[in-house]
């Protein structure tokens, strides 16, 4: 589904990604872990097409086609979803209106007719139930006045609405207490399907107790320095990121 080859990216001339290689197949969940400043969030932003970063080398194929030349909205319409670490507030724009615009833009891109209002409201209702989300959410403005936990839940709710092929969740666990973490993780697990894939970016192993990954990669100083199965996460938790650094130096 996604293949990243030797991807390099800079911000303001400083190189953050120094040659990333990663293969993600349908049905898989990949966890990317690493210390602060290792480039985890940069990777997520580059894949989503944020223009703060300049790609200086390598390529990314999404379902066999080059991804990097596409605008962020086209990537989204092609099925890439980014769960933001810091979801943005848009005052005055209701979640209903926002989601409806997004869904219809995506459907238009895929040559589908617009969703009727009745179908859309039904979809909202179903997904809210699935994600165990407060029904007042729809009438509130996008992320405005949401607590940290609500914002993260709202990201997963949007993911459920848009049904992406590839979801990249950028530190979805940060700032969540254990109950909120469980709700978010349950939501994510309900969305796992054989035909979609997820990249879960996290600093702590804790989230991976609830969202069990097929693969774990450790990112350090702009490179993936170690890959393994879920046991790697436990090992990391036990030994700390210094262990990787030391091992690398050897």
């Amino acid at each position: 589904m996604l293949s990243i080859r030797n991807l390099k990216a800079t911000i303001n001339g400083r190189e953050i990604l120094k040659g990333i290689n990663l293969e993600v197949k349908a049905g898989e969940v990949h966890a990317i872990m690493g210390p602060n400043g290792s480039g985890k969030s940069t990777l997520a932003s580059v894949l989503a097409g944020r223009d703060l970063f300049t790609v200086t080398g390598g390529e990314v194929l999404f379902e066999g086609s080059p991804l990097l030349g596409l605008s962020p909205e086209v990537r989204a319409r092609a099925g890439i979803f980014l769960g933001f670490q810091y979801p943005v507030e848009i005052p005055g724009v209701s979640m209903t209106n926002f989601m409806r615009t997004a869904i219809n833009e995506q459907r238009k891109y895929r040559g589908l007719p617009e969703m009727s209002a009745t179908d859309f409201l039904k979809l909202m209702r179903d997904k809210k139930a699935l994600m165990e989300i407060d029904s007042a959410l729809a009438s509130r403005s996008v992320n405005e006045g949401f607590s940290g936990g609500e914002k993260k839940k709202n990201e997963i709710f949007q993911m459920a609405m848009l049904e992406p092929k590839l979801a990249i969740l950028d530190e979805t666990d940060s700032g969540l207490d254990i109950d909120a973490l469980k709700t978010v993780a349950t939501g994510v697990n309900r969305l796992r399907r054989p035909d979609n894939a997820m990249i879960v970016i996290t600093h702590y192993q804790r989230l991976l107790d609830y969202i069990v990954p097929d693969f774990v990669h450790v990112l350090s100083a702009g490179r993936i320095v170690k890959s393994g199965d879920k046991t790697l996460a436990y090992e990391l938790e036990e030994k700390g990121y210094d262990w990787i650094k030391e091992e690398n130096e050897i």
């Binding site: 605008s71 933001f84 848009i90 724009v93 891109y109």
Partner: peptide, 23 residues
């Protein structure tokens, strides 16, 4: 804000329309 809308599949022109109407 615009990037957030873009990432959900909404192009920039439409995003500005949404944001301005919200404002």
């Amino acid at each position: 804000q615009i990037f957030y809308c873009n990432q959900r599949g909404i192009d920039t022109e439409t995003a500005i329309g949404l944001i301005v109407n919200g404002y």
